[in-house]
Computed example of a mutant assay.
Amino acid sequence: MYSTGWGADKSMTALISNNADIAFMGSESSIYVYNEGKEDYVINFAQLTQRAGNFLIGRTNEEFNWENVRGKTIVGGRPGGMPQMVLEYILKKNNINPYEDVEVITNIDFTATAGSFIGGTGDYTAEFEPSASKIENEGKGYVVASLGVESGMVPYTSYMAEKSYIKANPETIQKFTNAIYKAQIWVDEHTPEEISEVIAPQFKDTEMDLLIKIVQRYKDQDTWRKDPYFEKAGLDLLQNILDSAGELSKEVEYDKIITTEFAEEAIKNIE
């Protein structure tokens, strides 16, 4: 049985309250839980995405560089949320000080940012798919930058479980990781058209040609990992982003919240 968590906060609540055995969410959540001192903390065992999946949308199809946003307004995300922290990290990396050199709006609900931008709010907006491509298709804006490319290889999402569950159910975790790896191989070896055909039932409101465009965009920038292995460099970058946003109380050691044994076994057995 599976259900949609509707956000990392709700997914993590389900996991640590024993309403879920395995959860899929932003890897930063496991850092927060560990630093809160929970004895039965959460461990990442299979990484899925390795880049942020959102894009910066502008009102014109300009030749873009980050200096263009200076003095402008960006519709961002929830303060402390991963999309917003990645945006702020990129701005700082390009010597743009958030809230000083550029206004960032953070009080619009995640589901309403695209509509707000179309309605005239902001000069730019940070959007995930399919909102980004839908805005382009409607002629209301243009993708000018990929936040996933700009931020680098970030372990944006992964599968995780409590330490006690992993210890008690290694066979279940291994089978789950094997399945994830087989899916990663399939996605890597198939075309955007083939992938879109399979996932279309999950995106009933998205036309097939648009769905193909979205999958192609994500494949082109290596959004999805080709295996479930969670690399240390990814955790280091993730913690740098959290620290830059003022959300990292202390750095967490790699082997405390990451296990690669199930990914290694899947890679060895399936290949």
Rank of each mutant, 00 (worst) to 15 (best):
V33F: 04
V143C: 01
K250D: 05
G139L: 10
P201V: 07
Y34I: 15
M85D: 00
H190K: 10
Q216I: 04
P192N: 04
T206V: 15
K10I: 11
V215N: 00
E189Y: 05
T106N: 10
I173V: 09
P155V: 14
N240S: 10
Y34A: 13
S131K: 08
T121N: 08
T191G: 12
E251A: 13
I199E: 06
A20S: 13
V154M: 14
Q47R: 12
V86P: 00
I257M: 06
S30A: 12
T49Q: 01
V69F: 08
S196W: 00
E247I: 05
Q202W: 13
L248A: 04
I108L: 13
M153R: 15
A200T: 06
A263D: 06
D188E: 15
N269P: 01
Y218Q: 15
G76N: 01
F45M: 05
F64H: 05
V154H: 07
G152T: 04
M82D: 08
A233C: 09
I212V: 14
F45T: 01
V102S: 03
R217Q: 14
E251I: 05
T191M: 03
Y99P: 04
N18D: 15
V144R: 11
E103P: 13
V215H: 00
A46N: 03
A266I: 06
A8M: 12
V75L: 12
Q221W: 02
I16N: 02
G115N: 12
T172L: 08
